[in-house]
Design a protein around this nucleic acid. Structure first.
Lengths: 239, 239
DNA sequence: GCCCCAGTTTAGTATAGTCTAACTTCGCCC
DNA sequence: GGGCGAAGTTAGACTATACTAAACTGGGGC
Protein backbone atom coordinates (compact mmCIF):
# COMPACT_ATOMS: atom_id res chain seq x y z
CA UNK A 1 0.00 0.00 0.00
CA UNK A 2 1.54 3.22 -1.13
CA UNK A 3 -0.70 5.40 0.97
CA UNK A 4 2.50 7.10 2.00
CA UNK A 5 2.31 9.67 -0.74
CA UNK A 6 -1.45 9.87 -0.55
CA UNK A 7 -2.21 13.58 -0.30
CA UNK A 8 1.09 14.56 -1.79
CA UNK A 9 -0.53 17.46 -3.59
CA UNK A 10 -3.59 18.70 -1.77
CA UNK A 11 -4.26 21.59 -4.11
CA UNK A 12 -2.95 24.81 -2.63
CA UNK A 13 -5.47 27.47 -1.82
CA UNK A 14 -5.37 30.89 -3.36
CA UNK A 15 -4.13 32.32 -0.09
CA UNK A 16 -1.34 29.81 0.27
CA UNK A 17 -0.22 30.53 -3.27
CA UNK A 18 -0.02 34.23 -2.48
CA UNK A 19 2.02 33.63 0.64
CA UNK A 20 4.49 31.41 -1.18
CA UNK A 21 4.95 33.91 -3.97
CA UNK A 22 5.50 36.71 -1.49
CA UNK A 23 7.98 34.71 0.55
CA UNK A 24 9.85 33.86 -2.62
CA UNK A 25 10.20 37.51 -3.55
CA UNK A 26 11.19 38.58 -0.05
CA UNK A 27 13.74 35.87 0.51
CA UNK A 28 15.27 35.78 -2.96
CA UNK A 29 17.70 38.53 -2.04
CA UNK A 30 18.77 37.45 1.40
CA UNK A 31 17.91 34.53 3.56
CA UNK A 32 14.75 35.11 5.57
CA UNK A 33 11.43 36.75 4.93
CA UNK A 34 10.21 38.67 7.96
CA UNK A 35 6.67 38.32 9.26
CA UNK A 36 5.99 42.02 9.09
CA UNK A 37 7.29 42.29 5.54
CA UNK A 38 5.04 39.47 4.43
CA UNK A 39 2.14 41.12 6.20
CA UNK A 40 2.83 44.46 4.54
CA UNK A 41 3.18 42.95 1.10
CA UNK A 42 -0.03 40.95 1.35
CA UNK A 43 -1.87 43.70 3.18
CA UNK A 44 -2.89 41.53 6.11
CA UNK A 45 -2.24 41.84 9.83
CA UNK A 46 0.95 40.29 11.24
CA UNK A 47 -0.92 37.70 13.35
CA UNK A 48 -2.55 36.40 10.19
CA UNK A 49 0.92 35.76 8.86
CA UNK A 50 1.96 33.96 12.04
CA UNK A 51 -1.04 31.68 11.70
CA UNK A 52 -0.39 30.90 8.07
CA UNK A 53 3.30 30.39 8.71
CA UNK A 54 2.47 27.75 11.27
CA UNK A 55 0.27 25.86 8.80
CA UNK A 56 2.73 26.18 5.94
CA UNK A 57 5.64 24.90 7.96
CA UNK A 58 3.53 21.97 9.19
CA UNK A 59 2.88 21.00 5.60
CA UNK A 60 6.53 21.36 4.72
CA UNK A 61 6.33 24.26 2.30
CA UNK A 62 8.39 26.65 4.37
CA UNK A 63 10.80 26.56 7.26
CA UNK A 64 10.16 28.82 10.18
CA UNK A 65 12.73 30.07 12.65
CA UNK A 66 10.70 31.83 15.35
CA UNK A 67 11.44 35.53 15.62
CA UNK A 68 13.78 35.27 12.64
CA UNK A 69 11.60 34.66 9.65
CA UNK A 70 10.81 32.03 7.07
CA UNK A 71 12.39 30.46 4.04
CA UNK A 72 10.93 28.25 1.33
CA UNK A 73 11.72 24.56 1.29
CA UNK A 74 12.50 22.96 -2.06
CA UNK A 75 8.84 22.04 -2.33
CA UNK A 76 7.70 25.55 -1.48
CA UNK A 77 10.13 27.03 -3.95
CA UNK A 78 8.77 24.80 -6.68
CA UNK A 79 5.24 25.94 -5.95
CA UNK A 80 6.29 29.59 -5.85
CA UNK A 81 8.08 29.37 -9.16
CA UNK A 82 5.02 27.78 -10.69
CA UNK A 83 3.00 30.81 -9.63
CA UNK A 84 5.62 33.20 -10.92
CA UNK A 85 5.67 31.44 -14.26
CA UNK A 86 1.90 31.74 -14.43
CA UNK A 87 1.94 35.39 -13.55
CA UNK A 88 4.61 36.32 -16.06
CA UNK A 89 3.20 34.30 -18.92
CA UNK A 90 -0.23 35.79 -18.23
CA UNK A 91 1.09 39.34 -18.23
CA UNK A 92 2.86 38.82 -21.50
CA UNK A 93 -0.11 37.12 -23.11
CA UNK A 94 -2.57 39.77 -21.96
CA UNK A 95 -0.39 42.55 -23.31
CA UNK A 96 0.57 40.95 -26.56
CA UNK A 97 -2.64 39.18 -27.47
CA UNK A 98 -5.39 41.14 -25.81
CA UNK A 99 -4.11 44.68 -25.89
CA UNK A 100 -3.67 45.22 -22.17
CA UNK A 101 -1.44 48.04 -21.03
CA UNK A 102 0.79 48.40 -18.02
CA UNK A 103 -2.01 49.75 -15.96
CA UNK A 104 -4.38 46.86 -15.89
CA UNK A 105 -2.26 43.86 -16.60
CA UNK A 106 -0.85 43.21 -13.16
CA UNK A 107 -4.16 43.08 -11.34
CA UNK A 108 -5.70 40.85 -13.97
CA UNK A 109 -2.77 38.42 -13.88
CA UNK A 110 -2.83 38.47 -10.11
CA UNK A 111 -6.34 37.04 -10.11
CA UNK A 112 -5.96 34.71 -13.05
CA UNK A 113 -2.78 33.07 -11.82
CA UNK A 114 -4.81 31.22 -9.20
CA UNK A 115 -7.38 29.90 -11.65
CA UNK A 116 -5.47 28.83 -14.74
CA UNK A 117 -4.31 25.27 -15.34
CA UNK A 118 -0.75 24.39 -16.22
CA UNK A 119 -2.08 23.36 -19.60
CA UNK A 120 -3.46 26.82 -20.30
CA UNK A 121 -0.20 28.47 -19.33
CA UNK A 122 1.73 26.13 -21.59
CA UNK A 123 -0.63 26.84 -24.47
CA UNK A 124 -0.21 30.57 -23.94
CA UNK A 125 3.55 30.17 -23.77
CA UNK A 126 3.51 28.15 -26.97
CA UNK A 127 1.33 30.70 -28.68
CA UNK A 128 3.86 33.35 -27.68
CA UNK A 129 6.82 31.28 -28.87
CA UNK A 130 8.12 30.11 -25.47
CA UNK A 131 9.19 33.58 -24.36
CA UNK A 132 11.99 33.95 -21.82
CA UNK A 133 11.05 37.33 -20.40
CA UNK A 134 7.86 38.97 -19.30
CA UNK A 135 6.92 42.53 -20.27
CA UNK A 136 8.92 43.89 -17.33
CA UNK A 137 12.03 42.08 -18.47
CA UNK A 138 11.80 39.55 -15.66
CA UNK A 139 12.76 36.00 -16.58
CA UNK A 140 9.95 33.49 -16.93
CA UNK A 141 10.57 30.21 -15.10
CA UNK A 142 10.33 27.16 -17.33
CA UNK A 143 7.54 24.65 -16.96
CA UNK A 144 10.12 22.46 -15.24
CA UNK A 145 10.65 25.13 -12.60
CA UNK A 146 13.99 26.58 -13.62
CA UNK A 147 14.57 30.30 -13.56
CA UNK A 148 17.40 32.29 -14.98
CA UNK A 149 19.56 33.92 -12.35
CA UNK A 150 18.84 37.58 -12.27
CA UNK A 151 22.52 38.53 -12.80
CA UNK A 152 22.39 42.01 -11.39
CA UNK A 153 25.03 44.59 -12.31
CA UNK A 154 25.65 47.67 -10.27
CA UNK A 155 25.05 50.94 -12.06
CA UNK A 156 28.71 51.75 -11.44
CA UNK A 157 29.74 48.77 -13.58
CA UNK A 158 27.12 48.95 -16.32
CA UNK A 159 28.49 49.82 -19.73
CA UNK A 160 27.62 53.17 -21.25
CA UNK A 161 24.68 52.75 -23.59
CA UNK A 162 23.10 49.90 -21.66
CA UNK A 163 19.40 49.95 -21.02
CA UNK A 164 18.71 48.81 -17.46
CA UNK A 165 15.96 48.11 -15.05
CA UNK A 166 16.71 49.07 -11.48
CA UNK A 167 16.03 45.97 -9.43
CA UNK A 168 17.46 46.50 -6.00
CA UNK A 169 18.79 49.31 -3.88
CA UNK A 170 21.51 47.64 -1.86
CA UNK A 171 21.47 49.65 1.34
CA UNK A 172 19.44 49.88 4.50
CA UNK A 173 20.46 53.45 5.16
CA UNK A 174 17.40 55.62 5.42
CA UNK A 175 19.01 58.83 4.27
CA UNK A 176 20.36 57.19 1.11
CA UNK A 177 17.09 55.39 0.47
CA UNK A 178 15.20 58.62 0.79
CA UNK A 179 17.59 60.39 -1.52
CA UNK A 180 17.22 57.69 -4.17
CA UNK A 181 13.45 57.84 -3.89
CA UNK A 182 13.53 61.62 -4.35
CA UNK A 183 15.54 61.11 -7.48
CA UNK A 184 12.98 58.64 -8.78
CA UNK A 185 15.46 55.82 -8.45
CA UNK A 186 13.29 53.04 -7.07
CA UNK A 187 13.18 49.37 -8.00
CA UNK A 188 11.35 48.89 -11.24
CA UNK A 189 12.34 52.07 -13.04
CA UNK A 190 13.95 51.85 -16.43
CA UNK A 191 17.00 53.84 -17.32
CA UNK A 192 19.70 54.20 -19.92
CA UNK A 193 23.36 54.82 -19.11
CA UNK A 194 24.37 57.85 -21.14
CA UNK A 195 27.83 58.72 -19.87
CA UNK A 196 30.50 57.99 -17.28
CA UNK A 197 33.36 60.21 -16.23
CA UNK A 198 36.75 58.51 -16.13
CA UNK A 199 38.77 57.66 -13.01
CA UNK A 200 35.82 56.38 -11.00
CA UNK A 201 33.79 59.42 -11.87
CA UNK A 202 30.02 59.77 -11.71
CA UNK A 203 27.60 57.99 -14.05
CA UNK A 204 25.02 59.94 -16.01
CA UNK A 205 21.77 58.25 -16.88
CA UNK A 206 18.43 59.13 -18.33
CA UNK A 207 15.19 57.85 -16.94
CA UNK A 208 12.85 56.06 -19.30
CA UNK A 209 10.36 57.11 -20.47
CA UNK A 210 10.54 60.64 -19.00
CA UNK A 211 14.05 61.28 -20.32
CA UNK A 212 15.03 63.08 -17.13
CA UNK A 213 18.77 63.02 -16.43
CA UNK A 214 20.50 62.06 -13.21
CA UNK A 215 24.13 62.11 -12.25
CA UNK A 216 25.15 59.53 -9.66
CA UNK A 217 28.49 59.38 -7.91
CA UNK A 218 30.39 56.14 -7.82
CA UNK A 219 29.66 55.25 -4.21
CA UNK A 220 25.96 55.59 -4.70
CA UNK A 221 26.01 54.01 -8.13
CA UNK A 222 27.44 50.84 -6.62
CA UNK A 223 24.31 50.49 -4.52
CA UNK A 224 21.99 50.50 -7.50
CA UNK A 225 21.72 46.94 -8.75
CA UNK A 226 20.25 46.61 -12.20
CA UNK A 227 19.27 44.02 -14.71
CA UNK A 228 20.34 44.58 -18.28
CA UNK A 229 17.21 44.65 -20.41
CA UNK A 230 16.83 41.97 -23.04
CA UNK A 231 16.86 43.26 -26.60
CA UNK A 232 13.49 44.85 -27.25
CA UNK A 233 11.73 42.42 -29.50
CA UNK A 234 8.10 42.94 -28.74
CA UNK A 235 5.70 45.38 -30.25
CA UNK A 236 5.11 49.05 -29.65
CA UNK A 237 3.78 48.57 -26.14
CA UNK A 238 4.20 51.67 -24.01
CA UNK A 239 7.47 52.35 -22.27
CA UNK B 1 -26.89 60.92 2.07
CA UNK B 2 -27.06 58.12 -0.34
CA UNK B 3 -25.75 55.47 2.02
CA UNK B 4 -28.80 53.53 0.97
CA UNK B 5 -26.97 51.80 -1.85
CA UNK B 6 -23.77 51.55 0.10
CA UNK B 7 -22.64 47.96 -0.33
CA UNK B 8 -24.67 47.52 -3.48
CA UNK B 9 -22.01 45.25 -4.92
CA UNK B 10 -20.13 43.40 -2.26
CA UNK B 11 -18.23 41.23 -4.67
CA UNK B 12 -19.84 37.81 -4.91
CA UNK B 13 -17.80 34.87 -3.74
CA UNK B 14 -16.92 32.03 -6.04
CA UNK B 15 -19.43 29.84 -4.26
CA UNK B 16 -22.25 32.34 -4.59
CA UNK B 17 -21.52 32.68 -8.28
CA UNK B 18 -21.80 28.93 -8.71
CA UNK B 19 -25.11 28.79 -6.87
CA UNK B 20 -26.59 31.58 -8.96
CA UNK B 21 -25.52 29.99 -12.21
CA UNK B 22 -26.96 26.64 -11.14
CA UNK B 23 -30.22 28.16 -10.04
CA UNK B 24 -30.45 29.98 -13.35
CA UNK B 25 -30.07 26.76 -15.28
CA UNK B 26 -32.50 24.82 -13.10
CA UNK B 27 -35.21 27.43 -13.08
CA UNK B 28 -34.94 28.60 -16.67
CA UNK B 29 -37.27 25.86 -17.78
CA UNK B 30 -39.96 26.03 -15.14
CA UNK B 31 -40.45 28.12 -12.09
CA UNK B 32 -38.52 26.80 -9.10
CA UNK B 33 -35.17 25.21 -8.53
CA UNK B 34 -35.36 22.47 -5.89
CA UNK B 35 -32.89 22.24 -3.04
CA UNK B 36 -31.93 18.69 -3.86
CA UNK B 37 -31.39 19.47 -7.55
CA UNK B 38 -29.10 22.34 -6.67
CA UNK B 39 -27.24 20.08 -4.27
CA UNK B 40 -26.84 17.37 -6.90
CA UNK B 41 -25.67 19.78 -9.55
CA UNK B 42 -23.09 21.42 -7.30
CA UNK B 43 -22.14 18.16 -5.64
CA UNK B 44 -22.75 19.36 -2.11
CA UNK B 45 -25.06 18.10 0.62
CA UNK B 46 -28.64 19.43 0.75
CA UNK B 47 -28.16 21.20 4.09
CA UNK B 48 -25.34 23.19 2.56
CA UNK B 49 -27.81 24.41 -0.01
CA UNK B 50 -30.35 25.35 2.64
CA UNK B 51 -27.73 27.43 4.38
CA UNK B 52 -26.64 29.22 1.25
CA UNK B 53 -30.25 29.76 0.20
CA UNK B 54 -30.93 31.56 3.44
CA UNK B 55 -27.98 33.88 2.93
CA UNK B 56 -28.76 34.54 -0.72
CA UNK B 57 -32.38 35.38 -0.05
CA UNK B 58 -31.32 37.71 2.76
CA UNK B 59 -29.12 39.60 0.32
CA UNK B 60 -31.90 39.73 -2.24
CA UNK B 61 -30.37 37.61 -4.95
CA UNK B 62 -32.98 34.87 -4.83
CA UNK B 63 -36.46 34.31 -3.52
CA UNK B 64 -37.12 31.31 -1.37
CA UNK B 65 -40.45 29.57 -0.82
CA UNK B 66 -39.78 27.02 1.92
CA UNK B 67 -40.25 23.44 0.81
CA UNK B 68 -40.96 24.65 -2.73
CA UNK B 69 -37.68 25.91 -4.06
CA UNK B 70 -35.98 29.10 -5.15
CA UNK B 71 -36.06 31.56 -8.03
CA UNK B 72 -33.68 34.32 -9.01
CA UNK B 73 -34.60 37.93 -8.41
CA UNK B 74 -33.86 40.44 -11.15
CA UNK B 75 -30.59 41.17 -9.40
CA UNK B 76 -29.71 37.50 -9.11
CA UNK B 77 -30.59 36.91 -12.74
CA UNK B 78 -28.28 39.72 -13.77
CA UNK B 79 -25.41 38.19 -11.83
CA UNK B 80 -26.13 34.73 -13.23
CA UNK B 81 -26.17 35.99 -16.80
CA UNK B 82 -22.88 37.72 -16.21
CA UNK B 83 -21.35 34.39 -15.22
CA UNK B 84 -22.90 32.65 -18.19
CA UNK B 85 -21.51 35.26 -20.52
CA UNK B 86 -18.10 34.77 -18.99
CA UNK B 87 -18.27 31.03 -19.28
CA UNK B 88 -19.39 31.01 -22.89
CA UNK B 89 -16.97 33.64 -24.09
CA UNK B 90 -14.16 31.78 -22.34
CA UNK B 91 -15.07 28.47 -23.93
CA UNK B 92 -15.17 30.01 -27.36
CA UNK B 93 -11.91 31.87 -26.87
CA UNK B 94 -10.07 28.85 -25.49
CA UNK B 95 -11.19 26.71 -28.41
CA UNK B 96 -10.63 29.23 -31.15
CA UNK B 97 -7.49 30.94 -29.94
CA UNK B 98 -5.71 28.40 -27.80
CA UNK B 99 -6.57 25.13 -29.45
CA UNK B 100 -8.65 23.62 -26.67
CA UNK B 101 -10.96 20.74 -27.52
CA UNK B 102 -14.29 19.72 -26.10
CA UNK B 103 -12.67 17.65 -23.45
CA UNK B 104 -10.82 20.24 -21.47
CA UNK B 105 -12.56 23.46 -22.24
CA UNK B 106 -15.45 23.24 -19.81
CA UNK B 107 -13.38 22.62 -16.72
CA UNK B 108 -10.96 25.39 -17.61
CA UNK B 109 -13.76 27.88 -18.22
CA UNK B 110 -15.46 26.79 -15.03
CA UNK B 111 -12.45 27.92 -13.01
CA UNK B 112 -11.58 30.99 -15.01
CA UNK B 113 -15.08 32.44 -14.99
CA UNK B 114 -14.63 33.35 -11.34
CA UNK B 115 -11.33 35.11 -11.85
CA UNK B 116 -11.65 37.13 -15.04
CA UNK B 117 -12.64 40.78 -15.10
CA UNK B 118 -15.43 42.14 -17.24
CA UNK B 119 -12.77 43.95 -19.18
CA UNK B 120 -10.98 40.74 -20.09
CA UNK B 121 -14.19 39.12 -21.25
CA UNK B 122 -15.00 42.13 -23.38
CA UNK B 123 -11.54 42.07 -24.91
CA UNK B 124 -11.90 38.39 -25.70
CA UNK B 125 -15.32 38.97 -27.20
CA UNK B 126 -13.94 41.81 -29.30
CA UNK B 127 -11.04 39.69 -30.44
CA UNK B 128 -13.56 37.04 -31.51
CA UNK B 129 -15.77 39.55 -33.32
CA UNK B 130 -18.56 39.83 -30.75
CA UNK B 131 -19.79 36.28 -31.24
CA UNK B 132 -23.41 35.43 -30.52
CA UNK B 133 -23.01 31.73 -29.82
CA UNK B 134 -20.59 29.61 -27.86
CA UNK B 135 -19.07 26.40 -29.23
CA UNK B 136 -22.11 24.42 -28.07
CA UNK B 137 -24.44 26.69 -29.98
CA UNK B 138 -25.73 28.32 -26.82
CA UNK B 139 -26.38 32.04 -27.04
CA UNK B 140 -23.90 34.34 -25.32
CA UNK B 141 -25.53 37.03 -23.17
CA UNK B 142 -24.49 40.56 -24.09
CA UNK B 143 -22.38 42.67 -21.77
CA UNK B 144 -25.62 44.48 -20.94
CA UNK B 145 -27.12 41.22 -19.70
CA UNK B 146 -29.48 40.36 -22.51
CA UNK B 147 -29.75 36.82 -23.75
CA UNK B 148 -31.47 35.55 -26.85
CA UNK B 149 -34.51 33.49 -26.09
CA UNK B 150 -33.70 29.93 -26.72
CA UNK B 151 -36.57 29.60 -29.23
CA UNK B 152 -37.01 25.91 -28.97
CA UNK B 153 -38.74 23.96 -31.74
CA UNK B 154 -40.13 20.53 -31.21
CA UNK B 155 -38.57 17.84 -33.33
CA UNK B 156 -42.01 17.25 -34.82
CA UNK B 157 -42.01 20.77 -36.23
CA UNK B 158 -38.39 21.09 -37.31
CA UNK B 159 -37.85 21.31 -41.03
CA UNK B 160 -36.19 18.46 -42.81
CA UNK B 161 -32.49 19.18 -43.22
CA UNK B 162 -32.22 21.24 -40.06
CA UNK B 163 -29.30 20.67 -37.75
CA UNK B 164 -30.49 20.73 -34.16
CA UNK B 165 -29.31 20.50 -30.63
CA UNK B 166 -31.66 18.69 -28.29
CA UNK B 167 -32.22 21.04 -25.38
CA UNK B 168 -35.12 19.74 -23.39
CA UNK B 169 -37.18 16.59 -23.07
CA UNK B 170 -40.62 17.91 -22.22
CA UNK B 171 -42.07 15.13 -20.12
CA UNK B 172 -41.83 13.86 -16.58
CA UNK B 173 -42.86 10.35 -17.55
CA UNK B 174 -40.17 7.95 -16.45
CA UNK B 175 -40.85 5.32 -19.07
CA UNK B 176 -40.57 7.85 -21.88
CA UNK B 177 -37.52 9.48 -20.36
CA UNK B 178 -35.84 6.10 -20.04
CA UNK B 179 -36.70 5.26 -23.62
CA UNK B 180 -35.23 8.51 -24.90
CA UNK B 181 -32.09 7.93 -22.89
CA UNK B 182 -31.71 4.45 -24.35
CA UNK B 183 -31.96 5.98 -27.80
CA UNK B 184 -29.24 8.44 -26.95
CA UNK B 185 -31.69 11.29 -27.07
CA UNK B 186 -30.64 13.37 -24.10
CA UNK B 187 -30.25 17.12 -23.79
CA UNK B 188 -27.11 18.30 -25.45
CA UNK B 189 -26.93 15.82 -28.31
CA UNK B 190 -26.69 17.10 -31.85
CA UNK B 191 -28.82 15.71 -34.62
CA UNK B 192 -29.88 16.31 -38.17
CA UNK B 193 -33.44 15.87 -39.45
CA UNK B 194 -33.17 13.62 -42.47
CA UNK B 195 -36.75 12.76 -43.34
CA UNK B 196 -40.37 13.03 -42.26
CA UNK B 197 -43.28 10.91 -43.41
CA UNK B 198 -46.37 12.85 -44.48
CA UNK B 199 -49.71 12.99 -42.65
CA UNK B 200 -48.19 13.41 -39.18
CA UNK B 201 -45.84 10.52 -39.76
CA UNK B 202 -42.62 9.80 -37.90
CA UNK B 203 -39.46 11.88 -38.19
CA UNK B 204 -36.16 10.29 -39.11
CA UNK B 205 -32.97 11.81 -37.79
CA UNK B 206 -29.32 11.05 -37.63
CA UNK B 207 -27.23 11.62 -34.56
CA UNK B 208 -24.15 13.74 -34.87
CA UNK B 209 -21.36 12.79 -34.95
CA UNK B 210 -22.05 9.05 -34.81
CA UNK B 211 -24.41 9.12 -37.79
CA UNK B 212 -26.75 6.61 -36.11
CA UNK B 213 -30.36 6.83 -37.32
CA UNK B 214 -33.46 7.09 -35.20
CA UNK B 215 -37.10 7.11 -36.17
CA UNK B 216 -39.37 8.97 -33.78
CA UNK B 217 -43.17 8.96 -33.92
CA UNK B 218 -45.02 12.23 -33.85
CA UNK B 219 -46.21 12.05 -30.23
CA UNK B 220 -42.73 11.49 -28.97
CA UNK B 221 -41.14 13.94 -31.40
CA UNK B 222 -43.30 16.71 -29.93
CA UNK B 223 -41.61 16.18 -26.59
CA UNK B 224 -38.13 16.75 -27.94
CA UNK B 225 -37.47 20.47 -27.86
CA UNK B 226 -34.51 21.56 -29.91
CA UNK B 227 -32.57 24.63 -30.81
CA UNK B 228 -31.74 25.16 -34.42
CA UNK B 229 -27.97 25.36 -34.74
CA UNK B 230 -26.49 28.60 -35.99
CA UNK B 231 -24.76 28.32 -39.33
CA UNK B 232 -21.42 26.64 -38.72
CA UNK B 233 -18.92 29.36 -39.12
CA UNK B 234 -16.09 28.24 -36.95
CA UNK B 235 -13.27 25.95 -37.81
CA UNK B 236 -12.95 22.21 -37.97
CA UNK B 237 -13.15 21.70 -34.24
CA UNK B 238 -14.15 18.21 -33.26
CA UNK B 239 -17.76 17.44 -32.56
C1' DG C 1 -59.04 10.96 6.06
C1' DC C 2 -54.76 9.14 8.23
C1' DC C 3 -50.06 7.96 7.75
C1' DC C 4 -45.72 7.66 5.94
C1' DC C 5 -41.67 8.72 3.28
C1' DA C 6 -39.01 11.66 0.44
C1' DG C 7 -37.35 15.93 0.55
C1' DT C 8 -36.26 19.99 3.38
C1' DT C 9 -34.78 22.44 7.17
C1' DT C 10 -32.52 22.98 11.78
C1' DA C 11 -28.78 22.08 14.92
C1' DG C 12 -24.28 21.44 15.87
C1' DT C 13 -19.37 20.81 14.34
C1' DA C 14 -15.21 21.62 11.39
C1' DT C 15 -11.78 24.19 8.56
C1' DA C 16 -9.46 28.03 6.38
C1' DG C 17 -8.89 32.36 6.63
C1' DT C 18 -9.25 36.91 8.73
C1' DC C 19 -9.13 40.41 12.68
C1' DT C 20 -7.92 42.97 17.44
C1' DA C 21 -5.97 42.86 21.90
C1' DA C 22 -2.66 41.29 24.84
C1' DC C 23 1.58 39.11 25.84
C1' DT C 24 6.57 37.70 24.80
C1' DT C 25 11.13 38.08 22.90
C1' DC C 26 15.05 40.25 20.87
C1' DG C 27 18.61 43.15 20.59
C1' DC C 28 20.15 47.93 20.78
C1' DC C 29 21.45 51.90 23.60
C1' DC C 30 23.52 54.05 27.24
C1' DG D 1 24.07 44.89 31.93
C1' DG D 2 19.40 46.47 32.37
C1' DG D 3 15.57 48.45 30.24
C1' DC D 4 12.78 49.68 26.43
C1' DG D 5 10.62 49.72 21.99
C1' DA D 6 9.77 47.21 17.92
C1' DA D 7 8.76 42.91 16.00
C1' DG D 8 6.63 38.53 16.64
C1' DT D 9 3.45 35.34 18.74
C1' DT D 10 -0.59 33.69 21.34
C1' DA D 11 -5.43 34.07 22.54
C1' DG D 12 -9.98 34.61 21.31
C1' DA D 13 -13.61 35.98 18.14
C1' DC D 14 -15.83 36.25 13.51
C1' DT D 15 -17.22 34.87 8.54
C1' DA D 16 -18.02 31.77 4.85
C1' DT D 17 -18.52 27.44 3.66
C1' DA D 18 -18.92 22.68 4.22
C1' DC D 19 -20.46 18.32 6.68
C1' DT D 20 -23.52 14.77 9.58
C1' DA D 21 -27.34 13.75 12.39
C1' DA D 22 -31.77 14.74 13.71
C1' DA D 23 -36.25 16.91 13.32
C1' DC D 24 -39.90 18.56 10.52
C1' DT D 25 -43.56 18.98 6.42
C1' DG D 26 -46.55 18.05 2.99
C1' DG D 27 -48.72 15.49 -0.44
C1' DG D 28 -49.90 10.72 -2.28
C1' DG D 29 -51.52 5.98 -1.24
C1' DC D 30 -54.64 3.17 0.85
Amino acid sequence: MHATLRDANPPLTRSVEDYLKTIYHLSSQGGFAATSDIAAMLDVAPPSVSGMVKRLSETGLIEHVPYRGVQLTAQGRRAALRMIRRHRVLELYLMQRLGYDWGGVHAEAERLEHAVSDELIDRMATSLGQPQYDPHGDPIPTAAGEIEDAELVSLADARVGAKLELRQVATQDTARLRYFAEQGLTPGVLLAVTERQPFNGPTTLSLVPSGDRRVVGRDLARLLLCREMPVEAHGPTAR
